[in-house]
């Protein structure tokens, strides 16, 4: 299956080691890819290059099998949705006006009425008088109303309530289910873990990691909380996993990738008072955010 988007060696150097350097990104049909990294890592710059707002210094971008530049991307814009962290809409007009105008500029029928009802948006109030959450809803509808096949999303859900977050996630899944792809940049790693199939970690302008979330979780250390182990088990655990162990008031905690071996050991010692936790992306990526 061919990629919906391929970006090779994307580079934008702002000097002073700031920018994006040799980034490769590909999005397959049906895929939701999380794009994470600390502030200033280069996420927004990379997304701006992909959606044609910034010209890269180096690198090439192919979308829907067409080589595109900031100058030619408009031809395929009706197939692309862009949602920025701050809604970039004129404040004096109403959402209804914004949607109708966008529909006219896209040159195709859209589903803004259904989406407005779904997200419970007041379409008659000037956008400037809407709350931040409702402004974000306007942005979400503008990005998704034309059923795009490729969606770029930058910090979509900060400031909106959990019900709308859940509806938004469901809308993204719909895009993927139709064979589309989404690049979702967010600091909310629980949202990324819940929605995305794959995650790309970027730091100081370079991609540090690009892996499916399932394999990340599989490879990650699991956290065991073992309550009241007997002396033999306690000694055995210390012998095997000394440096990964921590004593608590009622037992031990242990972080390891060898979780099957630990479970075997616990069962062998007839210790059933334990808890195993999968690590969250927050825990896995904590070191990158330092």
């Amino acid at each position: 299956m061919s990629s919906l988007l391929t970006a090779n060696n994307l580079t934008k150097d702002f000097g002073d080691k700031k920018g994006v350097f040799g980034v490769n990104i590909s999005l397959q049909p049906g895929e939701i890819v999380g794009f994470v990294g600390p502030n200033g890592a280069g996420k927004s710059t990379a997304i701006s290059m992909l959606c044609g707002n910034i010209y890269p210094d180096k690198g090439d971008i192919r979308i829907f099998d067409n080589a595109v530049t900031a100058d030619t991307i408009y031809k395929i814009m009706p197939r692309i949705g862009v949602l920025l962290s701050e809604p970039a809409i004129e404040l004096q007009i109403t959402p209804k006006q914004a949607f109708m105008e966008s529909e006219a500029l896209l040159g195709k029928n859209t589903s803004w009425k259904e989406l407005s009802q779904n997200l419970k948006l007041d379409i008659h109030k000037p956008i400037g008088k809407l709350s931040l959450g409702n402004k974000k809803k306007v942005g979400i509808i503008l990005a998704l109303m034309h059923a795009p096949e490729l969606v770029f999303v930058d910090e979509p859900t900060s400031g909106i309530d959990p019900i709308i977050v859940s509806k938004f996630s469901s809308l993204l899944r719909d895009v993927a289910a139709r064979g589309g792809a989404i690049l979702l940049s967010s600091h909310d790693l629980s949202e990324i873990q819940e929605v995305c199939h794959r995650v790309i970690m970027i730091k100081e302008g370079e991609v540090l990691l690009d892996k499916p979330i399932n394999s990340l979780i599989k490879e990650a250390k699991r956290k065991f909380t073992i309550n009241n182990p007997d002396k033999k088990l306690h000694d055995q655990l210390i012998k095997n996993y000394g440096i990964d162990l921590a004593e608590t008031s009622i037992g031990l905690t242990l972080q390891t990738q060898d979780y099957e071996k630990v479970i075997d050991l616990l069962v062998k010692h007839e210790c059933y008072d334990f808890l195993v936790e999968n690590p969250s992306l927050e825990e896995m990526f904590a070191e990158y955010y330092i």
């Binding site: 970039a88 966008s102 500029l105």
Partner: peptide
Amino acid sequence: DKTILNYVTKRL
């Protein structure tokens, strides 16, 4: 005011 994005992301 960044509203230019609303136009450059259309078929223009």
